[in-house]
């Protein structure tokens, strides 16, 4: 297939089962490069599941079976020669609850560098530079530069979530997946994260799962609507909210499902 570089993520007939329960049914999506795409849909429709396919982290549950094809930047990630370590290096993930590791702020940011350069230790100054760069990018450097050795788990939730984004950056990911990154944050925190997403857009392809329709509307360029494990509609955000193609989408955005 001619892999159009415009698409970062392409899925073909993607099916996924949790044991006997089918959570994803024939998903075909094409997610464009360098923009923010949001995944919306009622609770339990499989948004998280789909997102967790893109870095194959679903496979940590032994009872998951996946069928179909997922192409990231033209490469099928289920090919036998794909290294999970490399895949996850180029696909970063931000979780619903901020989950910094219980080590210092500094170590959290360089964790990725350390695990990917196990044999060849980076010099201290390289690491310092990486920390400064990553924290500056997420806007934490000013606040935290004097307490990089404090435990990351003691930060405010908003700072923790930013740190979770910052620790992806030194690995230079192509794609950043976010699963309801603001659901644990207050209004201010939500705004800060959204602003950060705008900063990062362009350099990274961002896929964000959200429950919050206003957020999808504000923050994303394109929207994918899912229902009961099925793909329903994929349109530019403005169009999807004003002029939905599918009646089910219309019902959802009018608030008919929870």
């Amino acid at each position: 297939m001619s892999d159009t570089p415009a698409f970062s993520i392409t899925t073909r007939d993607l099916n996924l089962w949790y044991a006997k329960f089918q959570a994803l049914i024939n998903i075909n999506v094409d997610i464009k490069h360098g923009i923010i795409t949001s995944l919306i849909g009622p609770s339990g429709c499989g948004k998280t599941t789909l997102l967790r396919c893109f870095n194959r982290i679903n496979e940590r549950y032994t009872y998951v079976t996946t069928q179909g094809e997922i192409k990231l930047l033209g490469k099928n990630i289920y090919d036998p020669d794909v290294s999970l370590v490399e895949l996850r290096k180029s696909v970063g993930m931000v979780f619903q609850r901020p989950n910094p590791l219980p080590i210092s702020i500094y170590e959290n940011v360089v964790f990725g560098i350390r695990i990917h350069n196990e044999s060849r230790q980076s010099t201290r100054s390289d690491l310092d530079a990486a920390v400064e760069k990553a924290l500056t990018e997420v806007g934490l450097w000013k606040d935290l530069k004097d307490r990089l050795n404090q435990r990351a788990t003691g930060l405010q939730l908003e700072q923790q979530q930013k740190l979770c984004i910052a620790r992806l950056l030194p690995l230079k990911p192509e794609i950043i997946l976010m699963d309801e990154p603001c659901s644990a944050l207050d209004v201010e925190g939500t705004r800060a994260i959204e602003e950060l997403m705008f900063e990062l857009k362009g350099r990274y392809t961002i896929v964000i799962v959200t429950h919050n329709m206003a957020q999808a509307r504000r923050a994303s360029d394109e929207c994918i609507f899912m229902l009961m494990g099925e793909f329903i509609e994929h349109s530019p955000t403005a169009e999807l909210f004003v002029n939905p193609k599918n009646p089910k989408t219309a019902e959802y955005i009018e608030g008919r499902y929870g």
Partner: peptide, 27 residues
Amino acid sequence: VPDTYREAALALGATRWQIVYRVLLPA
């Protein structure tokens, strides 16, 4: 040790051994 720590490290590309000695043993 909360599972979220394992997922965090795994999603960054850590191998099982790296998770054990860099995350679980310290935690």
